[in-house]
Design a binder for these strands. Structure first.
Lengths: 225, 225
DNA sequence: AATTAGACTTTGATTAATCAAAGTTTATTT
DNA sequence: AAATAAACTTTGATTAATCAAAGTCTAATT
């Protein structure tokens, strides 16, 4: 039975491998995600390899095996279902749920998770707009388009918010940057690194590229479900 | 911040100290409850003392300090509220919830617990009939009367079932031995170590003293709420 | 080609929780 | 009072996860 630590490593490696084209994840990235020193990440990853959850090439990076991917997906499912429960059922604040789910995901059994999924009506997306893997380990592809990829005049719909910190989510909520919100790019200045957007029908907002990159969108008309 | 292990030790010491008149709990009892060797219990308890959660007298036993009692109560509250949630909301089976709650109780925060308590309507007793400590750490006194203390002809109402194992709970449910059920003692044989009881209006059952001791009751008419 | 910065790996130590087995105390029986 | 059993404590070892610091590689500059 994998420890909570192993579960965390596999979940983070999964998430990072999705965001990397090669599928390889570096030790530095792992150390950063898990808030450990690089030496710890190396040691841990070698342990994961010995157990058959990853393939590791020194100084190249690490890749999940089929069983590692399965476990990582299961953790992502737990995490996102729990976040949904915390918002929908217990009415917790958007900004609080990430850390809470981070703890609970290691303690909830498959059986309870299945009951929870049923109770919630088998949701497909969590409160941040991220897709929830099915119990089979499938996950709908997410858009790879952020606000940063949009040009002046384009309209788009927010799919998800890629920053789970309290701070950022508070900012996002205050400015109605929520999954489903309609956005229009009004102005763009690459040199000044700023972008003016219209949120909804009458609200305007200036954001920098770092923030724009965290708003994942699909262009209006596409991918409606 | 106390580890899950510390939380478990304090919770079990609390429960056992309630069941002992002196308030002292032996190393053997702790080792048995936590499924560790006596040596481990001794070592661990010395650590708990160093942190100020218990007072330990070698070969006498251990007693909770005020802060240890507080932490133990908080764990008991978590455990019993979670059990209630698992049965009431997620419709899990009576026999399954103990082990599930045992894991979740270490992962749930005070904030989420408070929301859960509110969502459940601030229940006072868990599905086994045990009282749920309040957030202040108060817990209604439970009856100290088991079926074993009743004599022929007496009637009583089941308050709680003091065995959390799947096996026993399956037996209890099958025979309608549930909190609230009305019991009448029909026959008693101390030598043969057996007791015949009427459960409800027409169902009869033979049980031994070990089982009778696990059925905590209050005599009919007393303590109605 | 030599230097250097940055990323990575190795090494040695630490902490928490545990066990097995040996040693000690206490209480009970003879 | 001696012997014994039962309960408890001590000791030495183990495992998982971690860090700091020293060492090694790789790739980019000079």
């Amino acid at each position: 039975m994998p420890s909570s630590t192993v579960e965390n490593y596999l979940k983070e490696i999964l998430v990072e491998s999705i965001h990397s084209e090669s599928g390889l994840v570096s030790m530095g990235k792992i150390a950063e995600c898990l808030q450990v020193t690089p030496g710890t990440a190396t040691t841990m990853v070698k342990g994961l390899e010995k157990k058959g959850w990853v393939n590791y090439r020194p100084r190249q990076g690490v890749k999940l095996t089929t069983s590692g991917r399965k476990l990582g997906m299961s953790m992502l499912r737990r995490h996102r279902l729990l976040e949904t429960f915390l918002v929908e059922t217990l009415d917790l604040d958007w900004g609080e749920i990430h850390d809470e789910a981070e703890e609970l995901e290691h303690a909830i059994s498959e059986k309870v998770l299945e009951k929870l999924d049923e109770f919630l009506g088998r949701p497909t997306h969590d409160p941040h707009g991220d897709p929830i893997p099915t119990s089979k380990g499938n996950m709908p592809e997410a858009s790879d388009l952020s606000l940063l990829d949009c040009t002046v005049g384009q309209t788009a719909k927010i799919e998800s918010i890629q920053d789970q910190s309290r701070e950022f989510l508070k900012f996002a909520r205050k400015n109605k940057l929520l999954p489903g919100s309609k956005i229009e790019v009004i102005q763009l200045d690459r040199i000044a690194d700023t972008m003016q957007i219209k949120v909804g029908l009458k609200s305007f907002l200036n954001i920098g590229s770092k923030t724009a990159e965290k708003i994942v969108v699909h262009r209006s008309g596409e991918m409606e479900q």
